[in-house]
Design a protein around this nucleic acid. Structure first.
Lengths: 344, 344
DNA sequence: ATGAAAGCGCTAACAC
DNA sequence: GTGTTAGCGCTTTCAT
C-alpha cells in the first residue's frame, strides 16, 4: 500500500451538501453554525445530506473566511511534568465536545521560545489563549495585551492580569506547609527546591515568611538548583542539605518528586521519616497518600485549573461574562505520617 | 482593559511584504518556502521587509490554498499517563523548529472517540498522523487506509501496518521479565494488571508464555482489572492476589505505578521485597531506580518512540524514504534489588 | 428565512 | 527567476 499523494478525490463541500438538500451553501453553513436561523424543514434535509455525504467542515476555510480559528492555544513549560499533565487532562476533558481544538505549545521554561510561540499562535487568530504563570517577558506581555482574543493565565496569581487568571498563591501555600512543620514541633525546617522557576521562588518566599514569623533563623537550610526535578535528585539534595546543615529536622520540598526521593534516601540512611525527619511535598500527587510512610503534601487543584481556564475562555468566546476575571483555587494541606513525630 | 473584538487592524499579508520589497506576493511566498528559487538579492530585500513589517504567515490561508495543513495529528489514549507524556516529550522536542504543529487528540481509550477524532483530523488535511497502538476499530482503520497522508502507529507492533510503525513487542518484553523472575528462583510468579488495554493483554500473554515454557502452572495468580492504574491500586490488587493465591512469591506488574504500590503495601505488611516477594514493574519510570529497595523493571524507549515517529513522518513528507517502515525499538530488562532473593 | 456576490490570504499552474 | 491568473471552501455583507 502506498501513501504517495494520490489524486485528491474531490472533497465534500458545503456546495455538495447544498445541492443534495436543494438549497444554497450559505444556508447549509448557517444550519450548521446557528441552526435557529434556519427553518426546521430545511434543517432536517440538510442534516440528512450531511450524514449521507459524510461532510466534514474545513477549519482552514472557515478560519480564513471568518478571520477566527477554532484553535485554543495552550502554552506550558513542560509536557512531562505530571503537574501540567493534570492541568491538560482537565482541559481536554472540558474542551471535548466543544467546537474547539486545544493546540499545545511547549515553552520549555524559555522566555524566547514563549515569545516565538505566542507569535505563531496569534498568527492563527486563535479563539483563545492559555498561558502558564504571570511572569511573561515584556515582549510576550505586549503581544498578549494587543491580542484580540480572550486570554487566561494559569497556575499562579498576580496583581496585573493580562486578561483573566486562574491559579493560587504559591507563597501562601508554602507558608502554610512550613507553619505546619513548625506546629508539629520541628524547630529546624529546611527547604529544597529543583528547577526554581518563578513559582518555585514564590514557594521559597513563603517558607521564609513562616520562618520569620516564628522567629526561626534559616541558617544554611535552603538548598536549590536549576536542574529539573526528579526523584533521584531528592537524594542528592538531601545529602547536600544534611552536609551543610546537620541540625535540619524537617524538610519542605518544592515538589512531590523530590519528597519521594528524600523519603527513599532517608530509608536507605536509616533515618525515620516523621520522628527524626519531618517531610512535606508539594502538589499532592497520588503517590503521596499511598507511600509508606504516607507523605504530607500541599494539594493543588490542577485538573480544576484546566477545566476552569477553558470554561472562562468559552464564556468570553460566547460573549458571556465569566464568573470572575481572577479565580483563586486555593490549596489544601494534607497532613500525613511523614510529619508525625510520634509515629511508631 | 477589554478584550472584546476590537476593529481588526489590517493584518500584514504577503501583498504588503511584496509591495515593500518591490516584487509580487508569489515571489515572497516562494522566498519563504523555497528560498533557492529566488535570487539572492530579492531574497534579502524580502527578508528585510518581512522583519520590518512583522509578517506572520496565515496557516489557514496556506492550508486552504495548498490543500495541505502543517498539522501533525497525534492520537493518544491518555494525557495523564506519564508513559504517553514521555512519548509526547520526544515528539515535541523533535518537531520544535520544524514547520509543523503537533495537534493532540485524547481518545480516552474509547474507539468511538478515536473514530471521531480521526475524522476531524483528516478534515484538516494533516501533514501526517500518529496513532497509538495497532488495534484500531474497523472504522478507524478504513479511514486511515484511505487517508492521503503518512501515518505512524506507535507503542506496539503488529503484522499489518496501516503505513508505518514504531514500537516494541509487549509480549516479548513481559516474557523476558517473567523469565527473569523464574531464573532468579521465584517459583510461583503472579501477574497483576490494571486498565488492561490491548497492550496490557499482550503483556499478560507474554507472562503466560514464560510460565508455560517453564512448566509452571498459573493457578489463581493473575489479577486484572479495567480500572485505570494508580499507585493505590497496587495495594488493593496485592491484597486480592495474596488472598486468592498465598503461594505467590513474585509479581510482574503491568506497569510501574502498580509496582510502586505493591512495594509500599509490602513494606506496610512487613513483607521483604526481594527475599520474600520478587517484584518487577514495566516501563522503567525514573522512580524505579531511586526507590528503596530499587525496583526491577522493563525499560521501554518512549521518548525515542516519539522522536522516531516524527522523523519517519518528516522523511515521508519531504518525499524521502524512511529508513524502514516498521521499527522495533525493543526493550531492556533492568534487574534491581526487588528481584534479589539474597538481599540484606 | 433564504440567497448572491465578494473576498479572506495564500499557492498551483502556467506563462514569460 | 519572476509574474499572472485563478481558485481553495468558507463566511461576511447586503439584498430579497
Amino acid at each position: 500500500m502506498t501513501k504517495a499523494p494520490e489524486k485528491a478525490p474531490h472533497r465534500v463541500t458545503l456546495e455538495d451538501v447544498a445541492r443534495r438538500a436543494q438549497t444554497s451553501s450559505i444556508t447549509v453553513s448557517r444550519a450548521l453554525r446557528r441552526p435557529e436561523m434556519v427553518s426546521e424543514k430545511l434543517r432536517a434535509r440538510i442534516a440528512e445530506a450531511v450524514t449521507e455525504l459524510g461532510y466534514v467542515p474545513d477549519p482552514a476555510a472557515s478560519a480564513l473566511a471568518s478571520r477566527r480559528s477554532n484553535v485554543i492555544g495552550v502554552l506550558i513549560p513542560s509536557v512531562t511534568n505530571s503537574v501540567f499533565a493534570d492541568v491538560l487532562a482537565g482541559l481536554y476533558d472540558t474542551i471535548a465536545g466543544q467546537p474547539f481544538n486545544a493546540q499545545l505549545g511547549n515553552t520549555r521554561y524559555a522566555p524566547g521560545i514563549e515569545d516565538a510561540l505566542i507569535r505563531v499562535f496569534l498568527g492563527q487568530r486563535p479563539a483563545g489563549l492559555i498561558v502558564t504563570g504571570v511572569d511573561q517577558s515584556p515582549v510576550s506581555r505586549a503581544l498578549l495585551e494587543a491580542a484580540d482574543c480572550p486570554i487566561v493565565q494559569i497556575m499562579d496569581l498576580g496583581n496585573a492580569p493580562i486578561d483573566m487568571m486562574v491559579g493560587f498563591s504559591h507563597r501562601d501555600a508554602a507558608r502554610t506547609a512550613t507553619e505546619h512543620l513548625i506546629a508539629r514541633g520541628y524547630s529546624c525546617p529546611a527547604f529544597i527546591g529543583a528547577r526554581m522557576d518563578p513559582r518555585s521562588e514564590r514557594r521559597l518566599q513563603g517558607f521564609r515568611d513562616a520562618l520569620a514569623a516564628a522567629g526561626i533563623t534559616e541558617g544554611a537550610r535552603v538548598v536549590t538548583t536549576t536542574t529539573p526535578s526528579s526523584v533521584a535528585l531528592g537524594e542528592t539534595l538531601l545529602a547536600q542539605l544534611l552536609a551543610q546543615a546537620p541540625e535540619t529536622d524537617a524538610i519542605l520540598c518544592n515538589n512531590d518528586d523530590l519528597a519521594l526521593g528524600v523519603q527513599f534516601a532517608a530509608l536507605r540512611r536509616g533515618i525515620a521519616i516523621g520522628p527524626e525527619l519531618g517531610l512535606c511535598g508539594f502538589n499532592d500527587l497520588e503517590v503521596m497518600a499511598a507511600a509508606h510512610p504516607s507523605i504530607t503534601s500541599v494539594r493543588t487543584f490542577r485538573r480544576e485549573m484546566g477545566k476552569l481556564a477553558i470554561e472562562m475562555l468559552l464564556a468570553r468566546i460566547e460573549g458571556r461574562d465569566p464568573d470572575a476575571k481572577v479565580r483563586d483555587l486555593g490549596y489544601a494541606l494534607m497532613p500525613r505520617d511523614s510529619t508525625r513525630r510520634d509515629r511508631a
